[in-house]
Design a protein around this nucleic acid. Sequence first.
DNA 1: GTGATACCTG
DNA 2: CAGGTATCAC
Length: 846
Amino acid sequence: MPDHDSDSFLNRQTKRRRVDIGVKRTVGSTASSTVAAVTATTDNIARAKAAIFSAMNSLSSHSHHGSDTDSMECSVVQPHGGPGVVSASDNESKSNVLRKLLKRANSYEDAMMPFPGTTIISQLLKNNMAKNGGGHDRGERGDRGDRGDAGFPGSGLSNASPDAPQEDACSNSSQDSTPPECMSPFGRPHGLATFDIERLNDEHMRAKRARVENIIRGMSHSPSVVIPAASRHERNHEIDGERETELDCPPPQSQQQPPSSPRGGEVCGGSSRENKRKQRLPQQQQQSFTQLVCQRKEQKQEERRQLKLQLEDMQKQLRQLQEKFFQIYDSTDDSEHNDLHNDLHNDIGNMSEDSPSRSDAAADDRGGDDLRSDNEMSDLDPGHFLDRARALLQEQALLADGEKPRREGISRSKAPGGLSSSMHAEGKQLAETLKQELNSAMTQVVDTVVKVFAKPPRPPPQQAFHPLSIPPERFPTVNGDNPNFHTTNPRLQCFGDVIIPNPLDSFANMPGMPGATNDQTEALPLVVRKTPSEHHQSSAVGAQGGHHHPALHPSSLSASMGFSPPSFRHPFPLPLMGYPFQSPLGAPTGGYPGKEHSSPDSMDLSRETTSLRTKMTSGHHLGHHHRSCSPAHPGSTAEGLSLSLIKSECGDLQDMSDISPYPGSNIQEGLSPNHLKKAKLMFFYTRYPSSNMLKMFFSDVKFNRCITSQLIKWFSNFREFYYIQMEKFARQAINDGVTGSEELSVSRDCELFRALNMHYNKANDFEVPDRFLEVAEVTLREFFNAIVAGKDVDPSWKKAIYKVICKLDSEVPEVFKSPNCLQELLHDVSQIGGRSSILHNLGWVP
DNA sequence: GTGATACCTG
DNA sequence: CAGGTATCAC
């Protein structure tokens, strides 16, 4: 609304300005121009309509213009001297009415507008007034007249009116600061007796004159006359616009005048021009004066016709409205109908009166009605009253805008009063019926709305858990895992997660999850779990079991292994997160002091989770445990409510698409210590893994930007340490007197290797591939040579080495692709104890 | 502008 | 190991 208002306001202003300007330009065009202008602006139209509507009445019935009216009109009217405008003829009366109406419109506009009399209407009025008053003075004079209400000095239309006057006018205008509010000056034609026609003629003439002058001016731009426009003040702008301005300010002027600028802007751009114009005008005017007058008359008549038509139109509409109004009552109660009818007629009759007086009259009538209505009201059922009011409102709604205002007021006021006691009973029934209907309608609407709101966010409760309950068949797994075990297709889950169900719903539904396995039952709704068999299948390598939630599956291998497969999703989605939560795991068994993160900030959470993870790792390597960072969170609630998942973190929905290609495995929200360990081991094979590779080998992690970045960062850090060690040992070798890189070698016994192994394979439970030793040796030599060559002076001297090393990456054994690779590898080592088995798994053993 | 990387710092 | 920043390539 505000915008609209402001806009409208601006528009109005603009329009107004424009109009004003237009007036000035055309000046003389008055009637026609005015009409056009009026039609041009919707606002004006609306007002005009209202005015006309009221005027309509006056025209049809009485044409008396109460002095009150004038007084009411204040700014505009008063100046005129109200009574002054006595209508001698029908035409005159009409014109007066219109004038009043227009005045009103003006008053409205004035209030809004910076400039008082700028409105077209006001100008029109002025013109009319001017005619009456001076009938003859040229526009210029009129202007002056404005300044001095009393003045109206130069009534002489005298075309010839000399320049002096004109100039004066300018100066005067500037001097006279006729309050803009009062455009009336014009309006207040002294010669009230003069006929509208005359006035119109005058106006037309002036307008035409002005136009002609403008044209002439434009054509004959005589430089000779240049008068300093020292005194021009725009307050006159109105005047100028109509008269002097018209004359003085040529089109250019109008152009120059900034619409927005207040009067000042209105000042004719070039005083010189004005002067010129003024001087010339007289001549010009004389020439075409006759023609102008004729045209003016015609225009005016046309305008009147149009206005009449409009009024008639409105009257028709009013009748229609009345009919409708009565119909309503007819349907309800005849007796009342009559009353209402009468009332309405009375009102209408009042309306027909002059608008101003009408309003008063209406008020009076209303007073009477009110009294009556009050009495009746006491008997009236409130509901009844409301119903009636509603009906009326509806009716009104159907009607055209312009006219309604009045009617509404009337009808409303009457409505109550109109209700008769007889109607009371029936009315009650009607009211009841309406109430019921309304209630039912409202109920439906509410239900609909509720449904709409409830559904979108996430499918009803059950849907929320769909991932779990949906039959496998419907969601074929990508990796070909046994569908039966894949109730939790990662991808599906992800999508499902996107929509966050209402926590309450989730809880509510939890118990009844259909088709939920035992795990599921225990588990949280969103938790995705695999059955033991599923776990095995899910892993490429096969073998690991442990995807179960520790609590649920304490015996799972995972528990024993450092790696716990993540299979559990957080049941409670955080409302703010647009993302699903997979709770990584099981750590949750409550083993972790983990914190619950209710914080919506996913980013922070992610970091936090990571940190926690890291800490946890270092702190306690919970044997089983959490693979994902989020692990910590779940902890607080045994249920695994791990809000931690919240961490969907960085997770952009986009990232969802990055989900690992291996749906078979459970996807975790974050990286766990085990992932770190795995990454370290992978470093023995690849120093520069691509993001795709990482996704491949960390298929159990839901990849998103954060995860990817983190993994990359891990490897970056690994490299950093690696190269630091290489440089360190290279320099050490140099210091030790090593002369050639050939002398350098990296063996499992060397200090360098131990340092590296300690860093990447602290537990030393992993057999470092020989290939790594080779790469390490190459790297060491590169550093050695570079340093020896003094390349280290170059800040980027290591880049060359990096290039070499990055090409030495070897393939990472498939086993690493398994989420449970650590379990497998370590398990084999620890449980089986056979290194050979591990090597075998890694493919290192033939 | 973004992502990847290197480098530095804590 | 993570955070931050700078650089480079796309």
